[in-house]
Every structure is written in structure tokens, then in C-alpha cells.
Design a protein around this nucleic acid. Structure first.
Lengths: 139, 139
DNA sequence: TATTGTTATACTCTATAACTATA
DNA sequence: TATAGTTATAGAGTATAACAATA
């Protein structure tokens, strides 16, 4: 392992905080937590059971229950009984939730690309490329 | 404004989530929230009043009160009455808090540099450089 | 009056443990 | 018995509004 080079590590951490803060603020403007926003994103192309949802979000089943309760109360998602296994409950977006999720997602993309505006185009692509290489090899 | 190029934006968002998750997990191993960890980091070289702390953390004064209460209950920080202005309360690390903060900070640097390991050294420096340029121009 | 901070209250988020229903 | 999910309970984190003390 090579020497950490602390200020370089700091730079990456600061970028991460900036991204996180932007997304959190955006979510808050729609009365969503970042977790709720991620929930909508996950459900965009899936109808997973509660436990699987928990794996995606790294939450316990009880936390997922509460999360889905609150989203369902707002009419964004709904629970669907499993067809083959009576114990399983799938979660899916309602029509309203899908429309909403789509809008929020577009805003998020816009917010992040605004954040990246200090970089001219070729560097932006370079940053993204490096980011991909890190996350591909990540835990 | 140029076209968003969604998958590039996604890559940066994913990197941010990975960094955030690492730091959150590390903090949790010490029974800290990420906010508590940031609090310790801020106090490393400052003894700010409550309101200023709130500006650093982007929290209301009431949230800061609770945050400092909990950190103080653990013996990590202490409140110090302002000398010139009787309304002001400064916050500073205790000796124990300082030792603890130092240890956690080193672990954090190590955790992040591990995360960046998929990149060979020159690329790591490039990533950091790009990150700096984004955050320098950022909100 | 204005400012700094705390307190009262409420809600989200999260976890652990106990419980229910199904397999 | 084992698994999927819910519920009861508790604590952190956050906010708004009302309050206290100081300026």
C-alpha cells in the first residue's frame, strides 16, 4: 500500500460531501429524505421484496418496513403480495410515484451536472471515467 | 449549459455514495454518526460558538444544541462561556475528545485511500486534482 | 429590540427484539 | 423449525416555535 497523501484523500471526501449535500437539499425541496429518493430510484425498474430492498439500501427489514410505510402513506409506492410465496411482499411505484420519481431524477441529474460545471467538458469525462474505475473495484 | 450525459453524472454520484458509506460505517464502528465525526473534525483546530458550528455543519442552532449535548455527554467536547459576550457559548474538544478525534481521522484517511486503491498512483492524483477543481468552484 | 442559545415538541430514520403468518 | 415481514420500543438527528439571558 502506498502512502495516503492526506490532502488528496481530503479532496475526494469533500467532493463526496458536496454531491451528498446537493442531493439531500434537492430531496428536501420535495419533502424527501435522501433514502426516500434512493428508494424511488431503485423501484424505477424493479418490484423487489422487502428484504431485497433492504439489501439495496443496506437497511434492516424493520427499517424498510417504516420507510415503505411512509412512502406508501404519501401514495408513492404500494405493497403487492407475493404470488408464489405468501410470506413475501413486493414493493412497487404507483403511477403517481413513477411520475414523481422521474421528475426528481431529472432534477438530480441537472443539479449534479451544475456542480460539475467548473470543469470543462473533457475533464468532466475524465473525472467520471476515474470515478467508474473506483466504484467498479469497490465494496 | 452542455448536455448532462447521465451516465457520467451517475458515476460521480456513485463515487460519492461509496465514500459516504465508507465514512458512515467507520463512524458507526466508533458509535458515531457522520455528523458527530464531522463535528470532531471541525473542532480539531477551532473553538467556535454554537451558531458558527451550525454554519459549518449546515444545521439550525437547535440541532447544534442537541448534537453538542450528546457529544458532551460522552465526554468528547465541552461548552465554554464566551469571554466578551455573555450570550455566546464556544465548543471545544476535551483532551479525550482530541485523542479520539485524531484516531478516527487517521482511520478515515486510511479507509478512503483503500477505497481509491483500484486506481494506480498517477490516476489517483488526477482524480484528486479534478475533485479539488470542482469543490473550489462549488457552493 | 436584536441576538445567542436552550427547551418543548414533533417527525423521520434507524436498530433490536418480540411477534405473526407462511413455508 | 426457518423465513418474510410487522410491530413495539428506544435513541439519534433534524426542524419550528417559544422562551431566557445578554447586548
Amino acid at each position: 500500500m502506498s502512502e495516503p497523501a492526506p490532502e488528496l484523500v481530503d479532496a475526494v471526501a469533500e467532493l463526496a460531501f458536496a454531491v451528498h449535500a446537493r442531493l439531500t437539499a434537492l430531496a428536501a425541496r420535495h419533502d424527501l429524505s435522501l433514502t426516500q429518493m434512493r428508494l424511488l430510484g431503485i423501484l424505477r425498474d424493479r418490484e423487489p421484496p422487502m428484504l431485497e430492498l433492504g439489501r439495496h439500501l443496506d437497511l434492516t427489514k424493520s427499517s424498510v418496513s417504516g420507510l415503505v410505510d411512509r412512502a406508501a402513506r404519501r401514495g408513492l409506492v404500494e405493497r403487492v403480495p407475493g404470488a408464489s410465496d405468501g410470506r413475501v411482499v413486493h414493493v412497487r411505484l404507483t403511477d403517481e410515484g413513477r411520475t414523481f420519481a422521474r421528475a426528481v431524477e431529472q432534477e438530480a441529474a441537472k443539479a449534479l451536472s451544475e456542480l460539475l460545471e467548473p470543469l470543462p467538458e473533457p475533464d468532466r469525462a475524465r473525472l467520471a471515467q476515474l470515478a467508474v474505475r473506483v466504484t467498479r473495484g469497490a465494496t
